[in-house]
């Protein structure tokens, strides 16, 4: 495939085209990814997540500066939501990073979530592999503005930064399950706003409650991305944290876990499609629903009947082979 050569040489057009291929989920993507896969594993992958308006994009913009000062090549995938009604999307994260658009060592790509609900998009994990193979040292994934449960970035990134801003709730919010549990690092952005110190104390308190090992606590850093304050500290902590991950062997454990999850996801997705076709769900669902609506069949009786029919057909298929 011509694309592959271009990507490995770090050319922008083939790289961008390849990302579209995985976003559009075209069948060619499988060969592409499998051929690039041996070249992956070198990049550090950072996840940046947090509620809408917390300042994720502005923070990423500043982190790009710090990475560039080390001569690192940086790629950013910035995800924004697709409309569940029209499928359209307004992708505006890059607006805050546009001053890097002429730096050939920085690649920024906006992605729409396209109906995926975990805070990232379907194509994201493959896009990361493409960027990794293209030789970027650092890949930053900026999720959509998340609520409490969109934590899938943890399955993509080596290290997750949770960006919060004051004014979003008390310590009970911080104790809830979900997004608060995935941060390797907490950033309280907009530190000049009232309540930032208090939020920091509350988060530290909650983190203390849930940890037996105070040494391993995720750092909580006050910053103002817009005023470029606290960025150096954040960036240093990030690097230290990453070094720790590598040394402790936790990074490879995380990556193995990631592969496990990804394989499961793809297998289930494919099986689901196979089954969908086999059961002919789309053709029959109206009829089945009608039967249940009229109470001619009970819901579970109907479901089990269809499953049994399917099992029987599978056995017939098996004996034929």
């Amino acid at each position: 495939m011509k694309l592959i050569q271009g990507i490995l040489q770090g050319k922008v057009r083939p790289l961008a085209k390849a990302i579209s291929l995985v976003e559009d989920n075209l069948i060619d993507k499988e060969e592409l990814i499998d051929q690039l896969y041996p070249h992956t594993g070198k990049a550090a992958i950072w996840g940046v997540t947090g509620p809408p308006g917390a300042g994720k994009s502005t923070l990423v913009d500043k982190l790009i500066d710090r990475e560039r000062s080390q001569d690192h090549r940086v790629a950013v995938i910035a995800i924004d939501p697709s409309s569940p009604f029209t499928g359209g999307a307004l992708l505006g994260d890059r607006l805050r990073m546009q001053r890097h658009s002429l730096d050939p060592q920085v690649f920024i790509r906006s992605m729409a979530s396209r109906g995926h609900l975990g805070g990232v998009s379907w194509g994201c994990s493959d896009a990361i592999k493409i960027l990794d193979a293209a030789g970027f040292n650092t890949i930053i994934i900026e999720t959509i503005g998340v609520g409490q449960t969109e934590i899938e970035v943890v399955e993509l990134a080596d290290l997750v930064m949770l960006v919060l801003a004051p004014g979003m709730g008390d310590e009970i919010q911080a104790m809830k399950a979900g997004v608060m549990e995935i941060g390797d690092l907490f950033v309280i952005n907009k530190k000049d706003l009232p309540g930032s110190e208090k939020l920091k104390a509350e988060i530290e308190y909650v983190l203390n409650l849930s940890s037996d090992n105070p040494e391993q606590l995720p750092p909580v850093i006050l910053a103002s991305a817009q005023k470029s304050e606290g960025i150096d500290e954040l960036w240093k902590k990030l690097s230290t944290k990453y070094q720790q991950l590598v040394k402790s062997g936790y990074l490879s454990a995380r990556r193995k876990e990631r592969i496990k999850k990804e394989l499961s996801r793809i297998i289930l997705y494919k099986v689901h499609h196979l089954l969908d076709k086999k059961i002919a769900l789309q053709d029959n669902i109206d009829n089945w629903a009608e039967q249940v609506y009229l109470k001619k069949d009970m819901p579970y009786t109907m479901v089990n009947k269809q499953i049994n029919r399917f099992k029987k057909e599978m056995r017939l298929d098996d004996s034929k082979n």
């Binding site: 697709s82 409309s83 029209t86 499928g87 359209g88 999307a89 307004l90 992708l91 505006g92 890059r94 607006l95 546009q98 658009s101 906006s110 729409a112």
Partner: peptide
């Protein structure tokens, strides 16, 4: 354009 189903990137 977003409301018509397209993915729009806005640069400012």
């Amino acid at each position: 354009l977003k409301d018509n189903g397209y993915e729009v990137i806005y640069t400012g």
